[in-house]
Amino acid sequence: MTTTPLIQATDASLEHNKQVLLTGINLTLLDGEIITVIGPNGAGKTTLLKLLIGEHKPTSGEITQAKHCRIGYMPQRLHIDNSLPLTVQRFLTMSGNKNQDAIEQALVEVGASHLQRSAIQTLSGGELQRVLLARALLREPNLLVLDEPAQGVDLHGQRELYQLLSKIKDKRGCAILMVSHDLSFVMAGTDQVICLNRHVCCSGTPESVSQHPEYLALFGSELGKDIAIYTHHHDHQHRLDGGIAVGNKSQDQTNSHKGCDHGNH
């Protein structure tokens, strides 16, 4: 473990066609840490990921990536035209890691060995995710970047996926940076939750809710081990256009997060 952060963003902003997509992003991702980004549609979550992994260059501010940072990226979705004959096996060799043992091991790790010879177009949503995860693992990353990994998967599938991710994290010790599609669910073990709406609304540690009676009644105690709810209060509200509505400052800020100061941007 080094003390250099894997990725650090300092006051980074991104504009495209004179439109502000992200502004005032400050973020530090350390080795072995889990950061979950949540936020409404159009908040710029995917854009933030792409900014952090270097696909977009910030218009202002700075993004620094540690030299030892090796990223395994899992996209939000993958559409492959039916005209392309492609087996899972061939798809995985595209990672550049052609070691057959490594491929088989990655498939075992994500529980998808039985899919090795399948055509990739025939996979279900959950199966495809596992294969995408295996592809990311073949890069032997110390940072897994996952864009809405639980999207299009039912609650059971989400739970399995989060279990799988925490297993991978324990085994490989890699950091995880992910976007959650749900405002209230983040993976257990998350060190930092970032609530995004073009700027970082607030960030902090998620509260453990596995003991909360209403939560247990809804999802059962088993689920509580793997999914936690991040409860937080905003010190401001958003208008429909995403701007900040004034005059709604709530007085009871909790310690679980720090709200950002909107006077600065």
């Binding site: 990226y73 996209p75 550049g96 995408l132």
Partner: peptide, 17 residues
């Protein structure tokens, strides 16, 4: 060949790689 194929299959993964 490999880069062409990777870009075709997923430009996002290809770019990240």
């Amino acid at each position: 060949w490999n880069n062409l194929l990777s870009t075709l299959v997923s430009s996002e993964i290809a770019q990240a790689e």
